[in-house]
């Protein structure tokens, strides 16, 4: 853990937290909120306010007549749609322009994040896991550690990792070369942002979830791990690390995940990411 903190301390600047999104989601999750409180958080973020106004007036949600009233648009969308939309918008800003360290094309890191979020929610719903919305948030944020790797090593990352090309798994290569992997860095960043448990641990274990025999096992970590692979199989955010990650053997049994279920979820995930992408294209300002 010390080495992870050393690494973060050496980082010239840390990625900014998606503050407004996290406040909105935490308020909605608490169950104790009203539209005024949501409006107060959203209105200080100009881009977010514009996006909510546009979505609230879109064909899918617009009541007759245009509304330029933020509170009215929030009410039209409802808590569930609003929190997901704001998370998707804000993480797009967090991941914006990033991904070169992993050889990704523009916006691919964000596409992979949304893919992991949708797959987490799908699996959580199928498994009747208590909180699909929490799984969604964890899936969305699971790769924030890649932003830290990018800030530290930038385009040089693939060349540096070649030193450990004898190792099969990308995570093992990161540990061998950097002393830490992007999952541990993401967990530390999430803690730095003040995200509550179990989100940092879901990020930490998204490639290597503890087995049911281990004391820190949590079904949520299994869900996010499986979702990470669904997102890879859906072709989202395939970088220079390719598919060089392990599938934890216990997860297949715990989640009753057969090849048919996985392929169904791969198709659904990809299609929903495409829908979200086109919705955000329509609501992005400038």
């Amino acid at each position: 853990m010390a080495s992870v903190m050393d690494f973060l301390n050496k980082c010239p600047e840390l990625p900014p937290a998606p503050t407004a999104a996290l406040r909105v989601v935490s308020l909605i999750r608490s169950g104790d909120y009203d539209i005024r409180q949501l409006e107060q958080i959203i209105r200080v973020d100009e881009a977010l306010s514009c996006a909510v106004l546009k979505l609230g007036n879109s064909a899918a949600y617009g009541a007759p007549g245009r509304s330029f009233n933020l509170a009215q648009c929030i009410a039209r969308l409802g808590a569930k749609t609003l929190s997901k939309f704001i998370l998707e918008q804000s993480t797009r800003q967090v991941y914006h322009g990033a991904g070169q360290a992993y050889g990704l094309r523009r916006e691919d890191l964000w596409r992979g994040a949304v893919g992991g979020a949708i797959a987490s929610e799908l699996i959580a719903q199928r498994q009747k896991y208590a909180d699909p919305a929490l799984a969604y948030t964890c899936g969305l944020l699971r790769d924030v550690g890649k932003l830290v790797v990018e800030i530290m090593y930038g385009d040089d990352t693939p060349r540096l990792l070649e030193q450990a090309s004898h190792l099969k798994c990308h995570l093992e290569r990161e540990r061998a070369v950097f002393g830490v992997d992007h999952a541990a860095l993401g967990a530390a960043l999430a803690e730095h942002w003040g995200l509550p448990a179990p989100i940092p641990d879901a990020i930490r274990f998204h490639h290597e979830p503890p087995t049911p025999e281990q004391p820190n096992h949590d079904d949520l970590f299994d869900v996010v791990h499986a979702a990470d692979l669904i997102s890879l199989w859906a072709g989202l955010a395939i970088g220079v690390d390719g598919l060089e990650y392990r599938l934890a053997p216990h997860v297949k049994e715990r989640l009753h995940l057969g090849i048919r279920e996985a392929e169904f979820e791969i198709a659904e995930t990809w299609a929903r990411v495409s829908e979200i992408e086109s919705m955000l294209e329509q609501t992005t300002i400038g």
Binding site: Y245, L247, I259
Partner: peptide, 11 residues
């Protein structure tokens, strides 16, 4: 493929 040691998930 992902690294699936028992080879059940060979998409």
């Amino acid at each position: 493929e992902v690294i699936d040691d028992d080879g059940q998930f060979r998409v």
